[in-house]
Amino acid sequence: MTAPARKRDPEGRRRTIVQAAVELLLEGDGADLTHRRVAARAEVPLGSTTQYFATLADLRTAALEEIAAANEAGLVEIREALAAPGSGPGTLAALLHDYIADEERIRADNALWAAALRDAELHRLVRHWYDGFTAVLRDHVSPRAAVALAVYLDGAAMHASFHDEPLDLASLAAAIAVLSTVEGGEA
């Protein structure tokens, strides 16, 4: 008796490969990302990684795009939370504190930033978050304040990368309250 044929799921296999590449990027600096390591992590044949991603650069880009997509989900969460009645600087501070306290999210963003520093084609992935975040904030503060808050968040995320503890909620709330009052036109 023969074993039943397994149903092919090319898109599922592709997602598994990309997720494995994301995991490996989060564990290292990306320099040691190989088709072989991704295939082993994804538990797929080596040929599958090269079937879906002809080059390692293609695979790395797909993994980084997956990280950027997670950031997009974060923007939706921020937009919805700030649109809720009674929200304000404290709401934003709480959301940002949750973000910088999430070590995996910080590692993911660091992987994205580091890759974009090495490859100008990836700048779009980092800018997408920044542009989206400032657009969300412009519904609540001046354009200059939105830029100041976005730049501050980038700094707070870097701070979290190199310190044992991220900035505390009270410090974030105080900085956000001050930066939210920045006035002026387009930044």
Results as ranks from 00 to 15, higher is better:
A3W: 13
R6Q: 14
P10G: 12
G12M: 11
R13L: 12
R14C: 11
R15E: 14
V18M: 05
A20D: 12
A20H: 07
A20L: 13
V22N: 06
E23D: 10
L26A: 06
L26F: 07
G28P: 03
G28F: 02
D29S: 08
G30I: 00
G30A: 02
G30Y: 02
A31N: 10
D32P: 04
H35V: 01
H35C: 05
R36Y: 05
A39T: 00
R41P: 04
R41L: 14
E43V: 09
E43G: 10
L46K: 05
G47V: 10
G47E: 05
S48D: 14
T49W: 00
Q51S: 12
Y52C: 02
T55G: 15
R60I: 00
R60D: 00
A62Y: 09
E65A: 07
E65I: 04
I67L: 15
A68Q: 01
A68D: 04
A69Y: 04
A69N: 02
A70R: 12
A70Y: 14
A70K: 10
A73K: 08
A73L: 11
G74F: 06
G74E: 04
E80V: 04
E80G: 05
A81R: 09
A81V: 03
A83L: 04
P85F: 05
S87D: 02
G88K: 03
P89L: 03
P89V: 09
G90N: 00
G90T: 02
G90L: 01
L92N: 00
A93G: 06
A94T: 02
D98V: 13
Y99K: 01
I100G: 03
I100L: 14
I100Y: 03
A101Y: 06
E103T: 15
R105C: 04
R107V: 07
R107I: 10
A108L: 11
A111W: 03
A111P: 02
A115E: 10
L117F: 13
L117M: 12
R118P: 00
D119H: 06
D119V: 08
D119R: 07
A120I: 08
A120Y: 10
A120C: 08
E121K: 13
R124Q: 05
L125D: 05
V126H: 10
V126C: 11
R127W: 11
W129F: 01
W129L: 06
W129Q: 00
Y130E: 07
T134E: 09
A135W: 09
V136E: 13
R138I: 11
V141S: 00
V141M: 04
S142H: 08
P143M: 09
P143E: 06
R144Q: 08
R144K: 15
A145D: 09
A145G: 12
A146H: 04
A148K: 03
A148Q: 05
A148D: 06
L149C: 00
Y152G: 03
L153Y: 07
D154I: 05
D154N: 15
G155Y: 15
G155I: 11
A156V: 14
H159K: 11
S161V: 12
S161M: 13
E165Q: 13
P166Y: 02
L167D: 10
D168P: 01
A170E: 15
A170W: 03
A170Y: 06
S171E: 01
S171W: 01
L172S: 05
V178I: 13
L179T: 02
L179H: 01
S180K: 08
S180E: 10
T181N: 10
E183F: 07
E183P: 05
G184V: 01
